[in-house]
C-alpha cells in the first residue's frame, strides 16, 4: 500500500514538473517565433483532444471538424466587428452554435458506419466552406465571402482577447488545453465514457446492455463541436485575420485526424503526443520547403501514418505508455510483501 502511494506520488510529481515547465517556458523562451510554434502546437493538441471525444471515444472518424473551427471563428469575429461584443462572449455563442450544428449533422450521419460517416463529414465541412466563400451577407451578418474578415488591433487587452505579445496567447491556449485534457480524463472514467467506448466497438452489444448508443454519440458530438469552436475563436483572435480557405480547410480537418491516429485515438495522451510529434514536422517543412515543396508535411504525415498503422495500430501512445510503466516499476519496484 505504502509503495503504491509513492508510485502514485511519483506520477503526480512528474505531472507537476511538466506543468511547471510548460507554464514557466515563456519566462525563458523569449523568441516570438518559438512561442508562436508552441501556441500552434497547443492549439492542435487542444483541437485533437476535442475531436477525440467523438473520433476516439465514440469510435467514428469525423473529417469535417474544420467547419466547427470556422463557426467559432466567424461567430465571435462578426459579433465583435459588427456589434462590439467581446470575443469571450462570442466564443460561447460560437460554441453553442457549433454544438447545435454538430447535433444536426450527427442525427443523420451517426447511423452510417466506417468510411460512409467519414465521407459525409467531409462533405459537410467542404459544404460549409463553399457556402462561406460564396456568401457576402448572411442576413444582417457580413461574412465578406472569400476575402475573409480582418480584426483591427484596437483596444488591445484581456477583455477583447487581443494582445500585442505572444505570452498571453500562450497562457490562454495552455489553460484551454489543460482544461480539455482534464475533461477528457473525467469523461473517460465516467459512465458516458464507458458507454461511448462500448457503443463504438460493438453497438449491438452495447444497446442490449442498456446503452442508447445514438444519444451518447450525439452528446459527445455536441461537446466536441462546442470545444472545437472555442479554439476557432482563439485562432481568430490570435491571427486577427480569418478567411474560409485557411480556417475551414480540409487540410485542417485531416491534420487533426492525422495527429489523433498517429498519437493514439481514444487515449488522453494520444492527441498531445501526436501534436508534439507532428506539429514540428509541419512547421519546419513550411519554413524550409514552403516555397519549393508546399504540402510536404502532408506527404510525411501520410507515410508516418501508414507505418504507425502497420506497426502500432493503436497509436504511438501505447508503446510509450508501456515504456513509461516499465520505467515506473523499475524506479519503484513491486512491494516485497503485503503488510
Amino acid at each position: 500500500m505504502g509503495e503504491q502511494m509513492t508510485r502514485q506520488n511519483l506520477q503526480i510529481s512528474s505531472l507537476l514538473l511538466v506543468g511547471i515547465i510548460t507554464f514557466g517556458l515563456p519566462l525563458v523562451l523569449r523568441s516570438p517565433t518559438y512561442l508562436h510554434i508552441l501556441i500552434l502546437l497547443y492549439l492542435y493538441a487542444y483541437l485533437t483532444s476535442s475531436w477525440n471525444l467523438v473520433g476516439g471515444f465514440a469510435g467514428v472518424l469525423p473529417l469535417g471538424h474544420a467547419a466547427f473551427v470556422g463557426i467559432g471563428a466567424y461567430s465571435s469575429t462578426i459579433l465583435y466587428l459588427q456589434y462590439g461584443i467581446s470575443p469571450w462572449l462570442g466564443m460561447i455563442v460560437g460554441g453553442i452554435l457549433a454544438a447545435i450544428v454538430g447535433i444536426i449533422i450527427g442525427l443523420p450521419t451517426f447511423k452510417m458506419r466506417g468510411a460512409y460517416f467519414a465521407l459525409a463529414t467531409i462533405a459537410f465541412g467542404e459544404g460549409i466552406r463553399v457556402m462561406v466563400e460564396n456568401i457576402d451577407y448572411l442576413g444582417p451578418f457580413n461574412l465578406n465571402g472569400p476575402r475573409g474578415l480582418q480584426i483591427p488591433p484596437r483596444n488591445v487587452g484581456l477583455t477583447n482577447l487581443m494582445f500585442t505579445t505572444k505570452e498571453p496567447y500562450y497562457y490562454i491556449i495552455l489553460i484551454m488545453l489543460v482544461a480539455v485534457l482534464a475533461l477528457t480524463y473525467f469523461i473517460s472514467r465516467s459512465k458516458l465514457g464507458y458507454y461511448l467506448n462500448a457503443g463504438g466497438e460493438e453497438p449491438e452489444a452495447a444497446m442490449s446492455l442498456g446503452v442508447n448508443v445514438a444519444r451518447c454519440k450525439l452528446i459527445a458530438m455536441a461537446m466536441s463541436s462546442f470545444l472545437t469552436a472555442l479554439a476557432g475563436t482563439f485562432y481568430a483572435q490570435f491571427t486577427l485575420f480569418i478567411h474560409p480557405k485557411s480556417i475551414i480547410s480540409l487540410d485542417l480537418s485531416f491534420e487533426i485526424a492525422f495527429i489523433a491516429l498517429i498519437g493514439g485515438r481514444g487515449s488522453i495522451a494520444g492527441p498531445v503526443l501526436g501534436a508534439l510529434l507532428l506539429r514540428p514536422v509541419s512547421d519546419f517543412s513550411r519554413i524550409y520547403f514552403g516555397a519549393t515543396l508546399p504540402g510536404l508535411h502532408l506527404i510525411i504525415f501520410g507515410t508516418v501514418l501508414v507505418l504507425v498503422m502497420i506497426y502500432q495500430p493503436r497509436g504511438l501512445q501505447e508503446p510509450l505508455t508501456r515504456v513509461y510503466h516499465k520505467l515506473l516499476y523499475r524506479l519503484i519496484p513491486e512491494p516485497a510483501g503485503t503488510e
Binding site: 459512465k191 464507458y194 458507454y195 467506448n197 449491438e204 452489444a205 452495447a206 446492455l209
Partner: peptide
C-alpha cells in the same frame, strides 16, 4: 437482458471494463 449467439465482447477493453458497461445500467 440477453447474450449473443456470436459473442460480441468489447475486445480492446478488459474483462472488468466489459462487465462495468453492464453495471452502469
Amino acid at each position: 437482458a440477453r447474450t449473443f449467439q456470436i459473442v460480441k465482447p468489447f475486445s480492446s477493453k478488459s474483462v472488468l471494463y466489459n462487465v462495468m458497461v453492464g453495471s452502469f445500467a
